[in-house]
Design a protein around this nucleic acid. Structure first.
Lengths: 181, 181
DNA sequence: TTGCAAACTGAACGAATGGTCGGTTAGTAA
DNA sequence: TTACTAACCGACCATTCGTTCAGTTTGCAA
């Protein structure tokens, strides 16, 4: 049910989706939906939490907390690509949230916390001499994760490209660009 | 008027914005808006056309049509960053369109044409030996312009970073990553 | 067969939506 | 002053929105 709902949200946008749209996609009446969830916003919250929980789980794994910053950064980047592939619909929805409701604002705040985590890694990477110092760390991390986040606009796992292959290419391209040489 | 409307669209999302919201932001009544434009969708169309016209203008400039593909690619990349900075609100709106209405679907079709133009440049760049052949051209162009498009999520010209500086950094990072060495 | 809970329906609710319309105001040229 | 027009207002319209609720169906354990 969450699966179908999020698929429709991503197709038409959350605000552009009516409960009638959801009911049609689910093959039931509007009222049936309320037997399972508290309402439209509840579906959104479940989806956003799932995406955010998965992303934060990456930042708590050993690979993200020990070792040189550049390695931790690459670990988080690869982990994010993995999460993005595993939870594609939920991450897609997360990246499109505008902050209209309380649920959305809370999700945006958690997203910002994740961005701060990444920004800190880049900063440390510069300090440890592994990242080009001529590029602003904030800018670098934004470009890096802007690229990652843009994946939701076109990446479809079912087309054959695995998350690992994608992460390899992305890491190769992006890190060659920002690493000191 | 278009300026204010698009600002509100970008803040709350197009579907999440009511005519009442627009009226409040403009300091007039709903009905006054209809004296100037045909309706909500008309405002959207004006904005999307403006962004798309500016992007296609870049592809028709000499820098985008003559010379080695790698140079043309860099020219289009820099031009896109310039357009993005000059027409930030309109480009932002364009990149968030979901295709719910006819206006939106038409805009998406033009966007795809732009993407095909870029994809072709990358393909030629590989053929001319200036772009790493070990990376799929389609993938490379998607990563490249995924990065460019992600700029709308955080770039604000008024914070001091000029479009040229941004384009320099972006070109440096991105092209070091994809260029043959 | 009965009993019961989960799943679901259809009709309706008040609120909000995009849009219309007859009339009023403000500015300006003759 | 008059005449005209662009700009605007307030009330209203039909429709759609998310949600509620009393009642019905379905599936299954006893």
């Amino acid at each position: 049910m969450l699966r179908v709902a999020v698929a429709v949200f991503n197709e038409r946008g959350y605000d552009g989706t009516s409960m009638e749209d959801l009911a049609r996609a689910l093959g039931v009446t509007k009222s049936a939906i309320y037997h399972h969830v508290a309402g439209k916003e509840d579906l959104l919250r479940q989806s956003l939490d799932r995406a955010l929980d998965a992303l934060f789980a990456v930042t708590e794994e050993p690979g993200a907390t020990t070792g040189p910053a550049i390695d931790r950064l690459e670990y988080v980047l690869r982990g994010s690509v993995r999460v993005l592939a595993d939870e594609l619909p939920h991450v897609t929805l997360l990246l499109r949230v505008r902050g209209n409701t309380g649920v959305e604002r809370q999700a945006l705040e958690r997203r910002r916390a994740f961005d701060r985590f990444v920004g800190e890694l880049v900063r440390e990477g510069v300090g440890e001499g592994d990242i080009r110092p001529d590029i602003d760390p904030v800018l670098a991390s934004r470009l890096l994760f802007g690229t990652v986040n843009s994946l939701v606009e076109w990446y479809r796992p079912e087309r054959g490209l695995t998350a690992d292959q994608l992460a390899d290419t992305l890491a190769a391209v992006a890190f060659t660009g920002i690493r000191t040489r």
